[in-house]
Lab assay of single mutants.
Amino acid sequence: QNEKLANELKSLLDELNVNELATGSLNTYYKRTIKISGQKAMYALKSKDFKKMSEAKYQLQKIYNEIDEA
């Protein structure tokens, strides 16, 4: 289960640069939040902690959705 979550989180991290570029014309909230979420996700992957990875995955998905809707 950890392996599956780690792969999903890696996949979301692969999209980080594209989504970060998409924040160029948006409010600074999005820029700041996506950077923080990305850092948390990288830390969670290194720690291999299921709870941290779950939270990081949720945060990344949430900010990606917010950027898409903005």
Score class of each variant (00 low, 15 high):
residue 1 Q to R: 11
residue 1 Q to W: 10
residue 1 Q to V: 11
residue 1 Q to D: 13
residue 1 Q to N: 10
residue 1 Q to L: 13
residue 2 N to S: 11
residue 2 N to L: 15
residue 2 N to V: 15
residue 3 E to W: 08
residue 3 E to L: 09
residue 3 E to F: 07
residue 3 E to T: 07
residue 3 E to R: 07
residue 3 E to Y: 07
residue 3 E to C: 10
residue 4 K to L: 09
residue 4 K to H: 07
residue 4 K to D: 09
residue 4 K to M: 10
residue 4 K to C: 07
residue 5 L to C: 15
residue 5 L to K: 01
residue 5 L to Y: 03
residue 5 L to F: 02
residue 5 L to Q: 01
residue 6 A to D: 02
residue 6 A to W: 15
residue 7 N to G: 10
residue 8 E to T: 04
residue 8 E to Q: 07
residue 8 E to M: 05
residue 8 E to L: 05
residue 8 E to C: 15
residue 8 E to S: 05
residue 9 L to N: 00
residue 9 L to K: 00
residue 9 L to T: 00
residue 10 K to N: 04
residue 10 K to C: 05
residue 10 K to Q: 12
residue 10 K to W: 06
residue 10 K to E: 06
residue 10 K to R: 12
residue 10 K to M: 09
residue 10 K to H: 05
residue 11 S to I: 11
residue 11 S to C: 12
residue 11 S to P: 00
residue 12 L to Y: 02
residue 12 L to V: 01
residue 12 L to T: 00
residue 12 L to R: 00
residue 12 L to H: 00
residue 13 L to H: 01
residue 13 L to P: 00
residue 13 L to R: 00
residue 13 L to I: 07
residue 13 L to Y: 03
residue 13 L to A: 00
residue 13 L to D: 00
residue 14 D to M: 12
residue 14 D to Y: 08
residue 14 D to R: 12
residue 14 D to W: 09
residue 15 E to L: 15
residue 15 E to R: 14
residue 15 E to F: 14
residue 15 E to A: 12
residue 15 E to G: 07
residue 16 L to V: 03
residue 16 L to D: 00
residue 16 L to M: 07
residue 16 L to Y: 14
residue 16 L to G: 01
residue 16 L to R: 02
residue 16 L to N: 00
residue 17 N to S: 13
residue 17 N to V: 13
residue 17 N to P: 13
residue 17 N to A: 14
residue 17 N to I: 12
residue 18 V to P: 05
residue 18 V to H: 12
residue 18 V to D: 09
residue 18 V to G: 08
residue 18 V to M: 12
residue 19 N to T: 08
residue 19 N to E: 05
residue 19 N to Q: 13
residue 19 N to I: 15
residue 19 N to A: 10
residue 19 N to C: 15
residue 20 E to C: 14
residue 20 E to I: 15
residue 20 E to Q: 11
residue 20 E to D: 07
residue 20 E to N: 09
residue 21 L to F: 08
residue 21 L to Q: 09
residue 21 L to H: 08
residue 21 L to R: 10
residue 21 L to K: 10
residue 21 L to V: 10
residue 21 L to G: 05
residue 21 L to P: 03
residue 21 L to T: 06
residue 22 A to M: 14
residue 22 A to P: 05
residue 22 A to Y: 07
residue 22 A to Q: 09
residue 22 A to F: 09
residue 22 A to T: 05
residue 23 T to I: 07
residue 23 T to G: 06
residue 23 T to C: 09
residue 24 G to D: 12
residue 24 G to A: 14
residue 24 G to Q: 14
residue 24 G to I: 13
residue 24 G to C: 14
residue 25 S to G: 09
residue 25 S to P: 11
residue 25 S to R: 11
residue 25 S to W: 08
residue 25 S to Q: 11
residue 25 S to T: 11
residue 25 S to M: 12
residue 26 L to S: 03
residue 26 L to K: 04
residue 26 L to H: 04
residue 26 L to C: 08
residue 27 N to P: 14
residue 27 N to L: 06
residue 27 N to G: 13
residue 27 N to D: 13
residue 27 N to Q: 08
residue 27 N to M: 06
residue 27 N to W: 04
residue 28 T to G: 13
residue 28 T to N: 13
residue 28 T to S: 14
residue 28 T to W: 14
residue 29 Y to Q: 03
residue 29 Y to V: 04
residue 30 Y to T: 03
residue 30 Y to C: 08
residue 30 Y to G: 02
residue 30 Y to I: 06
residue 30 Y to W: 09
residue 30 Y to K: 03
residue 31 K to R: 08
residue 31 K to A: 10
residue 31 K to Q: 12
residue 32 R to F: 10
residue 32 R to M: 12
residue 32 R to S: 07
residue 32 R to N: 10
residue 33 T to V: 13
residue 33 T to F: 12
residue 34 I to N: 00
residue 34 I to M: 04
residue 34 I to K: 01
residue 34 I to A: 02
residue 34 I to Q: 01
residue 34 I to C: 03
residue 35 K to F: 11
residue 35 K to T: 07
residue 35 K to M: 11
residue 35 K to G: 04
residue 36 I to K: 08
residue 36 I to C: 10
residue 36 I to W: 11
residue 36 I to G: 03
residue 36 I to N: 05
residue 36 I to M: 09
residue 37 S to H: 11
residue 37 S to I: 15
residue 37 S to T: 13
residue 37 S to M: 15
residue 37 S to C: 15
residue 37 S to E: 13
residue 37 S to K: 07
residue 38 G to V: 15
residue 38 G to K: 14
residue 38 G to N: 05
residue 38 G to E: 06
residue 38 G to W: 15
residue 38 G to I: 15
residue 39 Q to A: 11
residue 39 Q to M: 13
residue 40 K to L: 13
residue 40 K to A: 08
residue 40 K to C: 10
residue 40 K to F: 14
residue 40 K to W: 11
residue 40 K to S: 05
residue 40 K to V: 07
residue 41 A to Q: 00
residue 41 A to P: 00
residue 41 A to Y: 02
residue 42 M to E: 07
residue 42 M to N: 06
residue 42 M to C: 06
residue 42 M to D: 04
residue 43 Y to D: 15
residue 43 Y to P: 02
residue 43 Y to A: 15
residue 44 A to H: 01
residue 44 A to Y: 02
residue 44 A to T: 00
residue 44 A to P: 01
residue 44 A to I: 02
residue 44 A to R: 00
residue 45 L to D: 01
residue 45 L to N: 01
residue 45 L to A: 02
residue 45 L to F: 06
residue 45 L to Q: 02
residue 46 K to F: 09
residue 46 K to S: 07
residue 47 S to L: 10
residue 47 S to I: 09
residue 47 S to K: 05
residue 48 K to H: 06
residue 48 K to F: 07
residue 48 K to C: 09
residue 48 K to D: 07
residue 49 D to E: 04
residue 49 D to W: 03
residue 49 D to C: 04
residue 49 D to V: 03
residue 49 D to G: 02
residue 49 D to L: 03
residue 49 D to K: 03
residue 49 D to P: 00
residue 50 F to C: 04
residue 50 F to H: 06
residue 50 F to V: 07
residue 50 F to T: 06
residue 50 F to S: 07
residue 50 F to M: 08
residue 51 K to R: 09
residue 51 K to Q: 12
residue 51 K to S: 09
residue 51 K to A: 11
residue 51 K to P: 04
residue 52 K to W: 05
residue 52 K to I: 08
residue 52 K to G: 04
residue 52 K to H: 05
residue 52 K to A: 11
residue 52 K to P: 01
residue 54 S to M: 14
residue 54 S to A: 12
residue 54 S to Y: 11
residue 54 S to W: 12
residue 55 E to R: 08
residue 55 E to M: 07
residue 55 E to F: 07
residue 55 E to T: 06
residue 55 E to I: 11
residue 55 E to A: 09
residue 56 A to V: 03
residue 56 A to W: 03
residue 56 A to S: 04
residue 56 A to C: 02
residue 57 K to S: 04
residue 57 K to H: 05
residue 58 Y to V: 10
residue 58 Y to E: 14
residue 58 Y to P: 00
residue 58 Y to T: 10
residue 58 Y to N: 10
residue 58 Y to S: 10
residue 59 Q to V: 07
residue 59 Q to A: 10
residue 60 L to R: 00
residue 60 L to A: 01
residue 61 Q to F: 04
residue 61 Q to W: 06
residue 61 Q to P: 01
residue 61 Q to C: 08
residue 61 Q to A: 06
residue 62 K to D: 03
residue 62 K to A: 08
residue 62 K to I: 06
residue 62 K to E: 05
residue 62 K to V: 05
residue 62 K to T: 05
residue 62 K to N: 04
residue 62 K to G: 04
residue 62 K to F: 05
residue 63 I to W: 02
residue 63 I to R: 01
residue 63 I to N: 01
residue 64 Y to L: 14
residue 64 Y to H: 04
residue 64 Y to C: 04
residue 64 Y to S: 03
residue 64 Y to P: 00
residue 64 Y to R: 08
residue 64 Y to W: 06
residue 65 N to Q: 11
residue 65 N to V: 06
residue 65 N to I: 08
residue 65 N to K: 14
residue 65 N to C: 12
residue 66 E to N: 04
residue 66 E to Q: 09
residue 66 E to K: 06
residue 67 I to T: 02
residue 67 I to M: 05
residue 67 I to Q: 02
residue 68 D to E: 14
residue 68 D to Y: 15
residue 68 D to L: 15
residue 68 D to G: 12
residue 69 E to W: 12
residue 69 E to R: 14
residue 69 E to P: 04
residue 69 E to L: 12
residue 70 A to P: 03
residue 70 A to N: 05
residue 70 A to D: 04
residue 70 A to T: 04
residue 70 A to L: 09
residue 70 A to G: 04
residue 70 A to I: 08
residue 70 A to S: 06
